[in-house]
Design a protein around this nucleic acid. Structure first.
Length: 287
DNA sequence: AGACATGTTGCTCA
DNA sequence: ATGAGCAACATGTC
């Protein structure tokens, strides 16, 4: 599921649920080695048990939760960080405190009021774990957010030049410069910017690069405003949340019409992903 | 039955 | 060394 706005939605959902009773009484981990590759489950369980969820953040498609436990006469203080990447099918939900873990519930944190559930059927997600007063190194190295002042048109232009021969669609999916953009956001951005997804990144004119940069920021802002919500526990239904004036609800199957031109949309594999665009407004330019 | 899926990574080849 | 392209990962759904 998750691109940047959904990561923020899920972060809020867990954080909100933990607000009244932040202490984790019990931790369930499912035997999914793949998910816990860099996070030894026993150490994670030991650190999180009796700790309180005290802070959280989302960056790109990554989510980070901070857990703290003050020192007592019998145990030292704990400062632990839980990183979650939701992959393609990951989901953070909130269940009653008596929740019995289901087949794909790989991590469940129990408080007095709730069970915080991480489920992921396809196991493309990642769980990371870090001990210490500072956030982990991998978190600090995530590229600047699209909506931050550090995401400049110059930085975007330089990156496009470095990836000059790759289709612009593939370049927008690169997290090292466009954190949080996934398949549907990339298509939405290119559609709004009126740039053909197969256009080589290095062939964009300066005005097009600027438009692309502006639409990256606009779509990131709009997606956050439309999707991230307040973290309530209603199911996240993007088809309902996202207006039909976006490309989003028209892109999934053959036969869709462009909301701007009313002409037929095209679909093809570009940059290794199914891509949808409006030929009437996104023209491939041969140099 | 078969195609397809909102993601990443590790491998090849240029 | 760097970049481009692709298979692989694992499971559910249409």
């Amino acid at each position: 599921m998750p691109e940047l706005a959904e990561a923020e939605f899920f972060r809020k959902r867990w954080t909100q649920a933990a607000r009244p009773s932040p202490t984790i009484l019990r931790v369930h981990t499912h035997d999914a080695k793949k998910l816990f590759r860099t996070a030894p489950a026993p150490a994670l369980r030991a650190a999180l048990t009796d700790s309180a969820l005290t802070a959280s953040a989302a960056a790109g498609k990554q989510i980070l939760f901070r857990f703290q436990r003050p020192a007592t006469s019998v145990s030292p203080a704990i400062d632990a960080w839980l990183g979650i990447h939701l992959g393609m099918t990951g989901d953070l939900s909130v269940a009653p405190p008596a929740h019995t873990p289901r087949k794909h519930d790989h991590l469940v944190l129990y408080t007095t009021a709730h069970a915080l559930v991480f489920a992921d059927p396809r196991l493309f997600g990642r769980i990371q774990f870090h001990l210490g007063p500072d956030a982990p190194l991998w978190w600090a190295k995530i590229a600047p957010a699209l909506i931050s002042p550090s995401f400049t048109v110059a930085a975007a232009a330089a990156f496009l030049n470095r990836r000059a021969r790759a289709p612009i669609k593939a370049v927008l999916l690169m997290q090292e410069r466009f954190p949080g953009i996934g398949n549907w956001m990339a298509d939405e951005i290119l559609w709004r910017a009126a740039i053909h997804p197969a256009q080589p990144a290095g062939s964009l004119r300066p005005a097009e690069v600027k438009t692309l940069w502006r639409e990256c920021r606009a779509v990131a802002r709009l997606a956050l405003a439309t999707i991230a919500g307040r973290g309530d526990d209603l199911p996240l239904d993007l088809n309902t949340a996202i207006p039909d004036t976006w490309l989003f609800n028209h892109r999934w199957s053959d036969g869709g019409r462009c909301p701007k031109t009313k002409k037929n949309l095209s679909r093809a594999d570009i940059g290794g992903r199914t891509t949808c665009w409006s030929p009437a407004r996104q023209k491939l330019r041969k140099n």
